[in-house]
Amino acid sequence: MPPFLTVKNVSRSFGRNRVLRDVSLSIEAGRLVGLVGENGSGKSTLLKIITGMLKPDRGEVALSAKMGYCPQEALLFEQLTVLEHFRCFAAGYNLPDGEWQRRMEELLTHFRFKNHLRKQVAHLSGGTRQKLNLSLALLHQPDLLILDEPYAGFDWETYLHFWDYAEAQIGAGRSILVVTHFLSDQSKFHQIFDLKNGMLT
């Protein structure tokens, strides 16, 4: 089975500033992987290249699995309800009716925000927005889930529920990449990549 994600000799510069230098990594099935780096280390650039938002100057990225991406900032429509968000993203993932509603029910129950289903995002608390932000990335049951600085927005309850969920997903052969400037629970991770000055150490 090929790795879910392979990053091979990726480099990227902005003007004279070399942000990434020959970065290579791979993520196999059933792995919890951390990508750690301080501000300015190049992790945001690497994340954009992995998700496809940015093109590398050199090197290549191969993705052989269904990807789910949870951005750091909750990217949501203020005037849409929670239910409408699920409907919007279900269309993107091409999930048939019935299947996405079932998945939505599971996620609403697991992260405990079912009572907010018909509320507009503008009226949700920061914690509930983060739950929705994460749930939208999980709706299509991705093989590889990429989380950008997840701890920044999670409240304690969501944090605990997230780890429950993560353990179940990894047990089912799925993988999670956590991109962060600080990892508090290093023992939970199968592998940690440390990015310094655009290079993996």
């Binding site: 998700t51 938002m53 900032e73 990217l75 429509f77 919007c88 269309a91 993107g92 993932y93 299509h140």
Partner: peptide
């Protein structure tokens, strides 16, 4: 909603 639209593209749109 440019940021959300970008996210929608990442999700298949």
């Amino acid at each position: 909603n440019a940021g959300v639209h970008r996210r929608m593209v990442l999700c298949g749109y």
